[in-house]
Nucleic acid binder design. Sequence first.
RNA 1: GUGGCUGUGGCCUAACGGUUAAGGCACCUGUCUGUGGAACAGGAAACUGUGGGUUCGAAUCCCAUCAGCCACCCCA
Length: 419
Amino acid sequence: MKFTRPTGTQDILPEVQPYWEHILRHTTTLARQYGFARLDTPIFEKTQLFARGVGAGTDVVEKEMYSFRDKGGHELTLRPEFTAGTVRAYIENGMRVAPQPVKLYATGPAFRYERPQAGRFRQLHQFNAEIIGSPSPLADLEIMLLAWDIYETLGIQGLSFQLNSTGCPKCRPSYIEELKAHYQAHFDVICDDCKRRLETAPLRVLDCKKDQCQPVIAAAPKITAHLCSECADHFATLRSYLDDLGRPYTLNHRLVRGLDYYTKTVFEVWAEGIGAQSAVCGGGRYDGLVQLLGGPATPAVGFAAGLERMVMVMQAQGIAVPPLPTPPVFVVHLGKAARLPAVRLLVTLRQAGVGAQIAMGGSLRSQLRQANKRGARIALLVGEDELAQGGVTLRDLARGEQRYVPLGQVVAAVRERLG
RNA sequence: GUGGCUGUGGCCUAACGGUUAAGGCACCUGUCUGUGGAACAGGAAACUGUGGGUUCGAAUCCCAUCAGCCACCCCA
């Protein structure tokens, strides 16, 4: 095979498109219902935007970016996530003068240079939602409700909502000091990865899966016990909303996320069915990002949902989606003299809004076979006999009945048959 | 970046180191010169991922490489 798709990319074949169309329609319909407006940003941005926004020390920036220099010498990067570009657009387009908060959704591909595995791709697709311009826990709630609604109404089973707060620049540093002190005391038992993490991303030690680290994690100080009063109030209020609405969630003090911009609320939606990956959606609050990227101090909250993970979970759980419509009419023509009349008929049907296709050639048998295989409900036969009478033979493929129909009545007869 | 498993027509699978790599699905054609689905018959389609090596002889054994899958790191 000379050409194969690049590692970690996929051909989304016609057979799976019903899932994609269904999910896209579902997510965008819900987002609009919640008052979100669509924003499309470029698939690539200046590299510096991500380096600054996502965080120079994160894995995403350090080793996963598809970066390149264009012919003008500009350093560009295929977006590894949506939030940085969305915030850039908010600032650049002066959205701070729009009614606040601004509620935006986006969908499309993102790119990360990683080793592929179950549920992980180098070109991935996300549905993204952001509320920019409100510090209220109500904004967090809205984001979480939308995320929850998307998965629940898709019919996915076994969902779990993981929730935590990672504090803010006021309370997090002192917590990290305490966490580091705790780990220093157990430095001899923790794994090498955690020794490294302690320097590069201390919060991530809480996420370690190695057996030897579990007792250390269990005994580690919990950040939720070290939040400043503002963060603690925010978290308590959000939880009271969720409790009042009866939305189940799991407090997970080990939930820390790999992007630098998160403050206060962080959450993930977990589902079963994709090997080692359980997170189908992740998000949280990022109150410092707008200012960090050069805008006015503006609080915000959002989430990203992985579309291929949605497809995979739905397939694993056997959730059916509606089939995509195919043309109900197939035009069959016999002999050279019938070709042009058949094409005219085809065009007439389409102009009348009836889906129709035509055989490119072959015997009557062969053309009817094609009609059957393509799932047509009606075959319209145009041959010598029909031409002589000035009409067509309308064959109902499900019933196996057929009758002659004058040309002028074909559209009406087809519509009647299709109900 | 690290580790494990796997590469045979479009898809699924068979072939003790020994002739022209076999079968099923799908595709096309015919049986039926103007009638689909079923059946039957036929056809097209693979230099066995690639490159080396061992051997009289390699799909089969060895090495390398590439790709896929899975896991780690990390994330959707």
